[in-house]
Every structure is written in C-alpha cells, then in structure tokens.
C-alpha cells in the first residue's frame, strides 16, 4: 500500500535457515531446491496426444521442391531442408531394433525400474531412428518389435509408448 512507503519498517526473517553440510576445511551449506517447470509440447502436441490414442504420428515433408523430403520421428514441425511446415502422418507401430543398451545405473528421478532395456527402433518409411524402451524380452539388433501404448492413465510424456517383441 502506498502509505507503507512512508513508514519505518522492522523486517522479520521468514526464510528457512540452511544447515551446515560441512564445517571443515570450509563452511559448506546445504541449499535445497524444489521447483516445477511449465513446459509446452507446442506444435508437437499431436504426437503426444497420438500416443494416448494408440498411434505413432510422424511429420513428413511434402514440398515437391524439397531437396531431401523426409519422414521424421521424433517429429518436428518445420522441414530443416526446405523450411516448409510439414504434414502429420501415421507411421507403422512395428519396427526392428537398430541398437540397444541395458540401463543399469540411472540418474535421479528415473521412471522405470532398473535395470531395463533401452532400444532404438528403425521403422519402415521413417528416415530417422526412434528411441524407446523394451517392456519385456531381451533385445538383439534386427529383432522385430511392436509398439505398446499407454492409453489408460497416460504420463503425458514420451513414456506413453514402449515396445514389446513382435
């Protein structure tokens, strides 16, 4: 309020004191952080919506003058080769394993129970390779897999799709 600018004020500390993590060889304080980011999927929203509807949506450059018209999965809205806006296309929910790893020691916040198989999937008609995880089975390069979608209780993340042996 305006009148506050004319008053003398006694200021009270309302923070939470930091604890000392270490005292030697120098003071080291524990400085906690807790925060949330509001993150938009922007023009890629149809892809994430598509997962909750059981389909893999990619983007395709249909510009006849594009030097390298490609199908992108992960999708991107604008073609990097001709700068035209691309079109959404549904791509097959089957593919073959291009490469893989077993994630044994993961960073904090990992949402799958470790260890789990992370796989990169080549899909016919798609120019890129698509990363995901294998929900069951043991991967090999060249193995056929099919997509499994989390249509119930979606996570609203890329984890709404995973793969199982075909």
């Amino acid at each position: 309020m305006a009148e506050n600018y004319e008053k003398a004020i006694k200021t009270k500390y309302i923070g939470k004191p930091l604890t000392l993590h270490d005292e030697k060889p120098a003071w080291v304080v524990d400085s906690p952080r807790a925060m949330s980011h509001i993150h938009t999927y922007g023009l890629l929203t149809p892809f994430f919506q598509g997962l909750t509807q059981g389909k893999l949506m990619a983007t395709k450059c249909t510009n006849p003058k594009c030097p390298h018209p490609s199908v992108w999965l992960p999708p991107r809205a604008d073609c990097p080769d001709c700068y035209e806006r691309m079109k959404w296309v549904k791509v097959p929910s089957q593919g073959t394993i291009y490469t893989f790893t077993l994630v044994d020691y993961a960073g904090i916040g990992v949402e799958m129970k470790t260890p789990y198989w992370q796989i990169d999937v080549a899909i016919k008609g798609v120019d890129t390779i698509f990363k995901g995880y294998l929900e069951s089975g043991k991967p090999e390069i060249g193995m056929k897999v099919k997509a499994k979608f989390r249509t119930e209780n979606p996570t609203h993340t890329i984890l709404d799709v995973c793969w199982v042996p075909a």
């Binding site: 790893t101 994630v103 993961a106 904090i108 995880y133 984890l159």
Partner: peptide, 19 residues
C-alpha cells in the same frame, strides 16, 4: 522430450552407439 526420460544418465546414450 524424447531422450532424457529414457535413462537420465549420459552413459545410456553412448551405450547404444557402443553396441
């Protein structure tokens, strides 16, 4: 959007290349 959640550790992005 497409990779971090798959491992949350950089070794898991290099390991597929190794294989």
């Amino acid at each position: 959007d497409f990779e971090t959640r798959m491992g949350r550790i950089y070794s898991s992005y290099y390991a597929p290349m190794a294989n």
